[in-house]
Simulated assay, not measured.
Amino acid sequence: MSATGILEERLREAGFAAESVRMATGGVVAVAGLATLRDGSRVFAKTLRGMEADVFEVESAGLSALRERAGANTPTVLWVSRRLLVLEALSPRSDDVRFWEHLARMVAGLHTSQVSDRFGWHREGWLGRMRQDNAWEHDGHVFFAERRILRWLPEPLVEAAFDREERRAVERLCAALPELIPPRPPSLTHGDLWSENILADDAGAPVLIDPAVSYTWPEVDLSMLWCSPRPPASDRFFAVYGQLAPLDDGWQDRMPLLHLRELFSTIAHGDDDGGAVDAIRKVIAPFRRGGIA
C-alpha cells in the first residue's frame, strides 16, 4: 500500500474521514501529511511504517509538557496512539523580525520558568528514530557526555565514519567538558529546536513541534538554532533572548560543541550528513593525539 493509502486508512480507523492527503517530506521517522476531512477542516497526521514503538505517545507528552509547564505554544493533539498522531493543522512561519522576537520570548520563558535539580526526564525519549537516553543525573557534564555524545559512538554508521583516534578524541573532549562549559542548572528544553520544527498558528505566532524534551542546559536548544540553517531575521532571536535570559560569556564559541549531539545523530540515522563528519572533526581536532592530553 502507498504511503498515502496507509495514512488514509489509519485516519479512518481513528474516526477521521479524509477526502485527500497531501504528503509531507523531510521526516526521518513518520509517514506524514496534511489531510483534508469531509467537513472541509484540515489536520496534520503522522503514522509509522515498519516500526512499532511509543514514538507518538512520547511526542504528545512532550508537547503537553512544553505547553502546560512552560506556556509554550504547541499544536493541539487530536488523537494519539502507537499507530497514529493527529494534530491541528499549522501554517508556515513568516520569518520576519517580529516572528523571531516572539519566538525568543517564548523560548526564554521556557528556559527560565522550568528549572530542575536534575538533568534528564522521567521517561526515555526519541531523537528521530533512535532512542534518547534521559536517565536522571545530577552532574550536567556527565549527563551531556554520556547521554548526549558518547551514546552515539557505538552506532554502526558513526563507527564507520570515525577511526579509533578520532573516537578517543571525542572521549577526551567529554572528559574536559567541566573546563569547557560553565555549570548551569538544568532547564526544560525542547531538545530538537531547529528551524524546521518551528511553524505558525492562524494568528502568525510561533508554534513548536517535534520535541525531544529533557531538563538540560538551555544552550543546547540554542545550539540547534545557531548551527542549523536559518533565515537572516533569526539573528534577532538571539539578541532578544539574551536580554530576557542572560547568556554566559563565550556562548557563541560553545555552540559547535553543544551541537555535537545533533551531528552524531545525523550520521547515525544515515541521512545526507550535510558536512556533519567534517564539522565533528573540526570540533574534536584539539583533542586528537598531540593536542590536549
Rank of each mutant, 00 (worst) to 15 (best):
E13H: 14
W79E: 14
N197V: 05
G250A: 12
R147C: 03
S91I: 02
L63G: 04
L7N: 04
T47L: 04
L199R: 13
R22C: 12
D192A: 09
N134Q: 07
P186G: 03
E219H: 04
E179W: 07
S60F: 02
E166F: 09
P154T: 11
M106Y: 00
M1L: 13
P185H: 06
P232S: 09
H111S: 02
G270T: 13
A176V: 04
A135W: 04
V86T: 03
E9Y: 06
Y215I: 04
P75D: 06
R148D: 08
L247W: 05
R147H: 15
A24R: 09
M106P: 00
G275L: 13
D221Y: 01
V115D: 04
F237C: 10
L244G: 04
G5L: 14
E9F: 08
F16L: 12
M1Y: 12
A35R: 02
V213D: 01
H259D: 14
D192V: 02
D273F: 09
G140R: 00
L177A: 07
E19Y: 05
H102T: 14
R288I: 08
E68N: 11
Q243H: 06
R82M: 02
V97F: 01
V21Q: 03
D133P: 08
R168T: 11
V86K: 00
L257C: 10
R147N: 12
R184Q: 15
L153M: 13
I6D: 07
A276F: 11
V97D: 11
A276Y: 05
L193M: 10
E159K: 15
P75L: 07
D54R: 06
L188Y: 03
V213E: 01
E165R: 15
L84T: 05
L87Q: 06
W100P: 00
F143C: 09
P286W: 10
R289M: 08
M23C: 09
R129L: 09
A32F: 06
A45I: 11
G50D: 13
E57H: 12
L188E: 00
L247Y: 09
V115I: 15
A104H: 01
